[in-house]
Amino acid sequence: MAVNFVIREYSAFDEESGISILRPRMLPCEQPEGVGSIEYQYELSRQGDLVGGLGLLGDEHVDRTSGHPVWTYTLNLTLGRVVRDILRLKPIFGSEEADPVFLESIARGLVMSFAGQTTNSEDLRYVALTRRETLIEEGLVDRLGNALPYEDEVILADVLVPARIA
């Protein structure tokens, strides 16, 4: 079965498995390697019961080049450990997707968990990133087959949440 998330107010929901990825708890963190300044703590639930979790790092920055600020929050999926943690979720989804497709599906769910926001006064962008090297090291290829992107940074998923001013 394929994992396909739809936007809910505080989550991304996969109808086939009945699993929601809830909007994560976001905590400030200091990493000596400069890997991230935000710790994202995700919960996965089915009918209110916790069925899984995922923790990862990321960061934020503001882009003012378009004339109005866009806050970009990056989810760092460049560590092999994080990719392996995501792939370990396949059984709870009952997924038979190939690993690279499942990774992209979950990355979409992670960023989509933010898309139902209705009270943001500025544009927000959420991006799930990995690296070409990580995909190679973990034995994954992109959905186009054996051809990996040439660029080192690979965007697995992103979503823009426009400002909603009441």
Rank of each mutant, 00 (worst) to 15 (best):
T119N: 10
E133I: 00
F93S: 01
R125F: 11
A98R: 06
E138K: 00
G139Y: 06
G109M: 04
N120C: 06
L135I: 00
V127D: 15
D123I: 12
G139L: 00
A128H: 11
A128K: 10
L140V: 02
I106C: 07
Q117A: 14
T130A: 04
I106L: 12
R108D: 12
V111C: 01
S105V: 01
R143C: 10
L144P: 01
A115P: 00
V127G: 01
R125T: 14
S113T: 09
A128M: 13
F93D: 02
A107E: 14
G109E: 03
E97G: 07
E104P: 05
R108C: 11
D123F: 04
A107V: 13
A98L: 12
G109K: 01
L103T: 06
E97P: 06
G94N: 06
G109L: 01
M112V: 10
E96P: 00
L129S: 13
E137T: 13
L144S: 14
L103E: 04
E96I: 12
L110Y: 05
T119L: 09
G94F: 03
L110H: 07
D99Y: 00
L140C: 03
R108G: 14
R131Y: 14
V111W: 03
N120D: 09
S95R: 03
T130Y: 04
P100V: 08
Q117I: 09
I106P: 13
D99N: 03
L124F: 08
E122M: 12
L110Q: 13
S95H: 05
E104G: 06
F93I: 00
G109D: 06
R125W: 07
G139Q: 04
V141C: 14
M112D: 15
S121C: 07
E97S: 03
L103A: 02
A107K: 12
S113H: 02
E97H: 03
G139T: 09
E96Q: 12
T118L: 10
L129R: 15
R108A: 10
F102I: 10
L140T: 03
S113F: 02
L129M: 13
V127T: 15
T118V: 14
R143K: 11
E133V: 07
F93Q: 02
E96A: 13
S113K: 01
L144Q: 15
L144Y: 11
D123G: 07
F102H: 04
E104I: 02
L135S: 05
E97M: 10
L144N: 13
A128G: 13
R143V: 06
E138Q: 00
S105K: 06
V141E: 11
I106W: 06
E104W: 02
V111S: 05
R108V: 07
G139H: 10
R131P: 00
Q117K: 03
D142F: 07
L144K: 11
E138D: 02
T134R: 02
